[in-house]
Write a protein that binds this DNA or RNA. Structure first.
Length: 488
RNA sequence: GGGCCGCUAGCUCAGUUGGCAGAGCAUCUGACUUUUAAUCAGAGGGUCGGGGGUUCGAUACCCCCGCGGCUCACCA
């Protein structure tokens, strides 16, 4: 397929030809020595000849003088290009330069009449010709940005343009990278081992979500993209990897919205000899190091909210809080009564089971108020098949979910390690499965039968954490290449 | 999957109660040797998301489809 044709691209392709006719390589294989733009800025006015390179972001022609702004990841600097300082070849080349081109320049630096530090260019080279025009965004004297590229569809499909032009977006992805790096560093420093478990699985589990299904030709069998790493990581705890974690993609074949992506990044960690209380501390720690890495906190702005990330986070016990907010002892109600209430509240008229109803009602009565960092603790047992029951009340479990800004950021249990109990729960649950009815992960149960030490487990939605720390309104703004329909 | 909103030049957006398609930036030509949202003079640039219908005439009204956004549902 040839390059799309339009006036702008054709015009640039003609310039490209002209450059080639000058005997120049528009895409030379080497970059001559260069310094980052910030180094030139720091050097200030100087007679020394320095060289840098970057993308042409602005061009202001004044007859025999041309001002260009070029950028690299470290900053922006103005070029003062005057015909008398240049070879004829460089001057001719300048005539064929466009916004978006990548160039190399050298010269000394001086301050113009208007006070702008500028490179007095004496040598100009082309490093890469841009044949497609990029959107032009201008910032005025008041710092007001004009014509910003804001169409979400455009931005998601052409992330290279978004990163190039939208400071907020670029900074968000830099923050994301630093956040993940900081989480790794925190865990590695505390003797956690990072591992990789299968993405392509024959038996998926560890969460209640529909998987993406694929087919393994040479094995002649269906396989699944993982929905969680949980069941593999716990086998490693049994094996003696007592502090273990994985950061990776999970895939859930479910609806997409502001806080759900079919492909999302989760940190799961497991730690022996502790329980969900230990995991609360881990979560608080991780939020601290992540905020520091993102250069925010202790108070972060998220939309209309100011969120104070200072630990400890408040504990919200599931059942008592549900009772308090609803004014009824809902936990003691039967399914019929709960269904009637849910219907009355407009929470859907489909017949639901008791645990789902309780969860829905909790979402209705309590979740909206969980703006400041909160641990919802002690979930009903039916909602938590992989968690241990509390010793004093088997109807509830040692489980928490962490909420910030109303977003569910983490899920954690004191991991169930009773193999008999676990088998019974998983087998019951597997009978309800839509896709692989009755299939349970025998190897996971085998590991529990061998004996897993008491363990705390924690899963953190990394994309959502990035949302909170970078004030992103959609999870898609935290994912470089979010899934979009292809169209025609 | 449902509801609502949107799709107009490379980008950001106007617009037409149905009558020759608009602006700014960008591009091209010319002027300009310290500008910075450079300026000035001129020019080019459109399948008005796609298809069908109604109409003398549709970018606009109706239907179908595509893509996106918001929202509801689903997602322990």
């Amino acid at each position: 397929m040839a390059i799309e044709e339009n006036e702008f691209i054709n015009n640039r392709l003609e310039k490209l030809s002209a450059i080639k006719e000058m005997g120049l390589d528009a895409y030379p294989p080497q970059t001559p020595d260069r310094l980052p733009i910030e180094t030139l800025r720091a050097a200030g006015e100087t007679e020394n000849i320095m060289a840098t390179s970057g993308r042409v972001m602005a061009k202001r022609k004044h007859g025999k003088t041309v001002f260009c702004d070029i950028t690299d990841p470290t900053g922006r600097i103005q070029l003062f290009i005057n015909k008398k300082n240049l070879s004829e070849e460089s001057w001719d080349l300048l005539g064929n330069l466009d916004l978006g081109d990548i160039i190399w320049v050298s010269g000394n630096q001086f301050v113009t009449r208007t006070g702008e530090l500028s490179v007095r260019v004496s040598l100009l080279l082309l490093l890469a010709k841009a044949v497609r025009p990029m959107p032009v965004v201008k910032t005025d004297a008041d710092g007001e940005v004009h014509d910003a590229v804001s169409d979400p569809d455009f931005v998601y499909r052409h992330r290279c343009i978004d990163l190039m032009l939208n400071e907020e977006s670029k900074n968000r992805f830099i923050a994301r990278s630093k956040i993940i790096s900081a989480m790794r560093n925190y865990l590695d420093t505390d003797d956690f081992l990072e591992v990789e478990t299968p993405v392509l699985q024959q038996i998926y589990g560890g969460a209640a979500a529909d998987p993406f299904v694929s087919f393994y030709n040479s094995m002649d069998e269906d396989c699944y993209l993982r929905i969680a790493t949980e069941l593999y990581l716990k086998r490693l705890v049994t094996g003696g990897m007592h502090r273990v974690y994985e950061i990776g993609k999970d895939f859930r074949n479910e609806g997409v919205d502001r806080t759900h992506s079919p492909e999302f990044t989760q940190l799961e960690l497991y730690e022996a000899w502790t329980d969900y209380n230990g995991m609360m501390k881990r979560f608080e720690d991780i939020v601290q190091v992540a905020a520091k890495a993102a250069n925010v906190g202790p108070v972060v702005k998220f939309g209309e909210f100011d969120i104070d990330l200072t630990p400890p986070f408040q504990r919200i016990p599931f059942v008592p809080t549900l009772h308090e907010k609803s004014g009824e002892d809902l936990f003691d109600w039967d399914t019929e009564k709960l269904t009637a209430l849910a219907a009355k509240l407009g929470l859907g008229d489909e017949i639901k089971d008791r645990p789902t109803l309780l969860d829905k009602l909790f979402d209705h009565y309590v979740t909206p108020s969980l703006i400041q960092p909160s641990f919802v603790v002690d979930y009903p047992v039916e909602l938590s098949p992989l968690a241990k029951q509390k010793t004093d009340d088997p109807r509830i479990t040692e489980r928490f979910e962490a909420f910030i800004a109303g977003l569910e950021l983490a899920n954690s249990f004191s991991e169930q390690n009773d193999p008999v109990y676990q088998r019974q729960v998983l087998e019951t649950q597997a009978l309800l499965s839509k896709i692989r009815k009755g299939v349970v992960d025998q190897e996971f149960l085998y590991a529990l039968e061998v004996g897993m030490p008491p363990t705390g487990g924690l899963g953190i939605g990394v994309d959502r954490l990035v949302m909170v720390l970078t004030d992103a309104r959609s999870i898609r703004d935290t994912i470089l290449f979010p899934h979009l329909r292809q169209g025609q």
